[in-house]
């Protein structure tokens, strides 16, 4: 879509008229602040309630006490110090945080840990077994499925999902089913080759 600001209307207020009037009195942000946040700051903030849950991460059962707000991504990275899983956007829009939950690929940034008591979680750290790389990991190195490596854990976990779902039949199919993982370095050709190769091997 195109939006060329230079062709837009003469700039008008971004707040409603009511708010702009207040804004001239020097309180733009205040006026714009909607009731939601306003109530929360004025009302006594609910104290953090933590919940206890069990998650099996890479085969190891973990009993954790988490803030119900924590995503699986933040639990992995900040609580368990499993920093292999990456946060690229925290908005479900990049795929860097992809892990397998109960065998399915999901974006862990939009997944509340508190809703996944008892879940089986697999992350990039769990793929290597006894010092031997998973065939998909190997294929990523061989086929240049990475450059900076930041999207790579998400790509690999997503690639595992893609193969398991039966969506790795052809390069075109892989491209379609791997489009939930953005790679800004543009390692896509290698990613497709790696997934295709590993799908053939497994």
């Amino acid at each position: 879509m195109t939006e060329n600001p230079s062709e837009s209307h003469p700039p008008g207020p971004i707040m409603s008229r009511r708010e702009t009037l207040q804004a001239t009195a020097g309180a733009v942000a205040l006026a714009a602040l909607p009731p939601l946040s306003a109530t929360a700051t004025s009302a006594p903030a609910l104290d953090t309630n933590t919940v206890t849950l069990t998650m099996t991460v890479n085969g190891r059962a973990q009993t954790l006490s988490v803030d119900p707000r924590q995503s699986i991504l933040d639990v992995l990275r900040e609580t368990l110090n499993l920093t292999g899983t990456k946060k690229g956007c925290n908005q479900g829009a990049c795929g860097a945080c992809t892990v397998l939950v109960d065998g399915r690929r999901i974006v862990s940034c939009l997944t509340l840990a508190s809703m996944h008591d008892g879940a089986q979680i697999e992350t990039i750290e769990g793929l290597e077994k006894d010092g031997v790389l998973h065939p998909l990991q190997e294929a990523f190195v061989e086929h240049e499925g990475l450059q900076c490596g930041f999207c790579t854990p998400g790509q690999i976990m997503s690639g595992l999902g893609c193969i398991a779902e039966g969506h790795a039949g052809s390069p075109e199919e892989i491209q379609f089913w791997m489009s939930g993982n953005i790679c800004r370095c543009g390692a896509y050709p290698g990613i497709v080759a790696a997934v295709a190769d590993a799908a053939g091997r497994t």
Binding site: E78, K86, T123, Q137, G149, I156
Partner: peptide, 16 residues
């Protein structure tokens, strides 16, 4: 490559 495909490669925010 190995560090990057195993999650062992540490980027700034990974240094807790």
């Amino acid at each position: 490559g190995r560090a990057k495909v195993t999650g062992a490669a540490r980027y700034a925010a990974d240094f807790n």
